[in-house]
């Protein structure tokens, strides 16, 4: 293989790994949006806080990696559940922007809380895959990237099976289409909404734990939520497959831009894509053809 192709392949693989994390975050956002019609701007801070919690559990408490991951997921799920059940529910029925403002406020409070608890410095934690890599042909693939891709695949597959084949998952879909009808079919809509937030929170925690070894455990991790929003717009807002496709594409585009475009483009590429999609094809790649029912 010539070096040029090899480099593109290498970057694409790295992009898919990062993109898998964007996809996980975007999936959480879209599930929350479909269930409660709120764009949860605090989602990135749940992810960021989870990375810090995982760091604390691994480095300070000395817990084994997997146990730390599970506890982190439970904590993130619990916080997200409480946010929905105790905070967001208060403003049900208010205009859309009220929800956006409220989640923005929660985002800043979470950011402040993490900053007060852990201080502003970046840090890192050991994973079972730190520093290891696998050679395939001429490609060098960090094991961490393989784990990220595998984890994202597993979570997506589980989520799909859950939504498609379990009555709980089907109830969630039903409640997102018509809450009143769902209630009168015996579906406890409020509890399900909290449950969806908790699931999305746990997914964000996984994203945080996977992202931290690449991007460091840092307050700035919340930025992923913006990348995930770009992914959602690219994939088609409100579409679950779109969230995955959009996340992967944003990840790849970013990596390629980092090498083939002038310095600085890597950081703004996601937003350039966001703007371009909004201007040229606002429906997104897999967006629903019909407008949102009001």
């Amino acid at each position: 293989m010539n070096p040029q192709t090899l480099q593109i392949l290498q970057l694409t693989l790295n992009g898919i790994a990062i993109g898998s994390i964007y996809a996980l975050v975007a999936l959480g956002l879209v599930m929350i949006y479909k269930a409660t019609e709120v764009i949860n701007f605090a989602h990135g801070d749940i992810l960021m806080g989870s990375a810090f919690v995982a760091w604390g559990l691994i480095t300070i408490a000395g817990l084994p990696f997997w146990l730390a991951v599970i506890i982190t997921m439970l904590i993130a799920a619990g916080i997200s559940w409480l946010l929905e059940a105790r905070v967001m529910r208060v403003i049900v029925g208010q205009p859309h922007f009220a929800g956006a403002m409220l989640t923005l406020a929660i985002a800043f409070m979470l950011r402040g809380a993490v900053s007060m608890a852990f201080g502003p410095s970046s840090r890192t934690f050991q994973t079972p895959w730190s520093g290891q890599s696998t050679h395939v042909g001429g490609l060098v693939i960090a094991d961490l990237n393989l784990v990220i891709i595998a984890a994202a695949l597993i979570i997506t597959a589980l989520l799909f099976a859950f939504l498609r084949f379990s009555s709980l998952g089907i109830s969630i879909q039903a409640a997102s289409q018509n809450q009143l009808a769902a209630y009168l079919c015996g579906i406890p809509v409020k509890r399900l909404n909290s449950f969806v937030w908790a699931m999305a929170g746990a997914m964000a925690a996984v994203g945080g734990v996977l992202l931290a070894p690449i991007a460091l455990v840092d307050i700035g991790l919340w930025f992923v939520v913006l990348k995930a929003l770009a992914a959602l717009v690219l994939g088609g807002f409100g579409s679950i497959p779109g969230a995955i496709v959009g996340g992967l594409l944003i990840g790849v585009v970013e990596q390629l831009a980092g090498v083939y475009l002038p310095d600085g483009f890597k950081d703004v590429m996601a937003y350039l894509v966001l703007i371009a999609v909004l201007i040229l094809y606002p429906r997104g790649l897999l967006g629903e053809a019909h407008g949102r029912r009001v």
Binding site: N178, L180, A181, A182, C185, G186
Partner: peptide, 28 residues
Amino acid sequence: ELFEGATVLQNLLLGRHRFPHGNILAQL
């Protein structure tokens, strides 16, 4: 008040939601 994005059959099956259909593991 119907589930607009679902088929007629799916709407009617949702009417059966109140009857037990096993736990989540059994369903999966």
